[in-house]
Amino acid sequence: MDNLRLTEKGNTLTVTISGEVTLDNTLEIKKRFDEVLERDRYASIILDLSGVTFIDSSGIGALVVFNTKVKTQGKLLFLFMPSDPVRKTLSLVQLVSFFDILDSEDDLLTVLPD
């Protein structure tokens, strides 16, 4: 799929998702998430959601499961600058505080200084 991009820097992996995240592509996104989980060399994962234009509950479910699996591996996962539609859906289902959210580049530098 072309709306998910991986970028490596040191022991941090950035997963950038853009466009819509709905039932239409959630299965594919979950598959890509599972591939990411098989890689051992990352200590932190940044999930860049700044370019997501729409997300439904199936997309939120995929984020929830990914977050749990990453944390179970003892790694860090941050949602980076979630777009307004992502924030809206997260807020509706009361999951804003469930995730570690970074609202700016400065926030990112605070948790991952290098």
Partner: peptide, 19 residues
């Protein structure tokens, strides 16, 4: 009702109800 925070599904009807 809303799903448990770590549940994968079960939020669709809740979203509809909220809106």
């Amino acid at each position: 009702r809303n799903a448990e925070p770590d549940a994968e599904g079960g939020r669709g009807l809740y979203i509809i109800k909220k809106l």
